[in-house]
Nucleic acid binder design. Structure first.
Lengths: 164, 164
DNA sequence: ACAACTCCTTGCAATACGCAAGTGGAAGGA
DNA sequence: TCCTTCCACTTGCGTATTGCAAGGAGTTGT
C-alpha cells in the first residue's frame, strides 16, 4: 500500500522525495565535493544556492533519512552532515544523470570530467565509490582504492588545463 | 562552456530540464504506459495531473526536445506525442529511480512489479527496451523481443492477483 | 568587553502549482 | 444543416514554493 500523497509508484515516490531543483544538488555537493557543513555548502556552491533554501533542504533531507547531522565537537554551533546508506545508494542515479546530461545538454568541460570518469568506470567504479563513501560518512573501514581522489585529481587537472 | 542559468555541471543541467515533480512522470507514462495523446495522459494518470500542468509540460518537453508532436491523421485536433532519442536514453535513469524507490520508500506492490523486472534485467533488458521504444516512437525496425509486453503482462498479473 | 564568525530566520516579491470552470474548434449524427 | 458531443487546451484565482536581501541570535577568539 502506498504511503504518501500521489501514488505508490516507486518512480513517483522517488520524485516526491528528490524531484525538485535543489535536493540532489545538495547531495551531489556532499557526495562529490565532500562539503560537510552548512557554511561549506553555502559558500562553495557552484550554483549559488540561497541560504534559506539550503537550510530548508538540509532539514528535509535529514527528516527523510538522506542525511544525518551530528554536532561538531570543536564548534558547538556547527553541524556536520553525513550521507546515509540511502543517499549513498543514489550514486548510480547521479552517475546516470551526469551521463545523460553530458550527452544531451551543453555542460562545461571541467565539470564534465568527473561525470565522464563515472560513466566509463561503470558499476565496478560506482561500487568502489560507494564503499569509500561508507567509510567517509558511516565509519566503515577504509577501502584500498580512493575513487574520490581519482575524481578530484581529474577535476583539478581539467581546471589547471583550462586556466592555461 | 555552460549554456543555461546556474552552472555547467551535467547533473545540474539535467536537473534544470527534468527536476520538477511532473516532467518525468509524463515521460514515464508515455514510455511505460504508451500514452500518446493529451487525453490519455490526463485521464489515465495514476497521480492525477492537472490539465494545465499537463499542457505546460507537454509544451516544455517538446520545446526541449524530449517529446515530439505530430497531428493525428484521423482526428485533426488530436496530437500524437512520441519519445525522442534523448528521452529514450532516460530508460536507465528511470530504472535506477524505480530501483531506489523500491528499496527506500514504501511503494505499492502492483506498481513495483515493473521496476523489479527492470532492475533484475539490468543493462541487457534496458537496451532491448530502448530498441523497442525506438520502434514504437521513431519508426525503427521491430525488435524480436517485446519488453513492453513482458512488463505489461507482469503488471496485469499483479493487478489480478491483488483483485482476488 | 568586543568584534568576527556561523547558522540560520524573516520580509517580500516573483514564480510555480492546483483546482474548477470555461472556450473554441472538430466529429458525428439526425 | 443544425445540434450535440468530444477534445485539447486556457483562464481565473487562491495557495505553496522559490529567490533575494537583510537581519538576528548563539559561539568563538582576542
Amino acid at each position: 500500500m502506498p504511503q504518501t500523497g500521489r501514488s505508490g509508484c516507486p518512480i513517483n515516490l522517488t520524485l516526491e522525495q528528490l524531484g525538485d531543483r535543489w535536493s540532489l544538488i545538495v547531495i551531489r555537493d556532499v557526495m562529490f565535493g565532500n562539503r560537510r557543513t552548512y557554511g561549506e555548502l553555502l559558500e562553495r556552491s557552484e550554483e549559488g544556492i540561497a541560504s534559506n533554501i539550503l537550510a530548508d533542504r538540509l532539514k528535509r533531507l535529514t527528516a527523510s533519512g538522506l542525511l544525518t547531522r551530528r554536532p561538531d565537537p570543536n564548534h558547538r554551533q556547527k553541524g556536520i552532515y553525513s550521507l546515509t546508506e540511502a543517499s549513498i545508494q543514489l550514486v548510480p542515479l547521479l552517475a546516470h544523470m551526469g551521463a545523460w546530461g553530458r550527452r544531451h545538454t551543453r555542460p562545461s568541460r571541467e565539470l564534465s570530467v568527473r561525470a565522464e570518469l563515472l560513466e566509463k568506470g561503470g558499476a565496478p567504479l560506482w561500487n568502489a565509490f560507494m564503499a569509500e563513501l561508507a567509510h567517509l560518512h558511516l565509519g566503515a573501514p577504509r577501502p584500498a582504492r580512493s575513487v574520490f581522489a581519482e575524481l578530484q585529481a581529474a577535476y583539478e587537472k581539467a581546471l589547471a588545463h583550462r586556466a592555461l
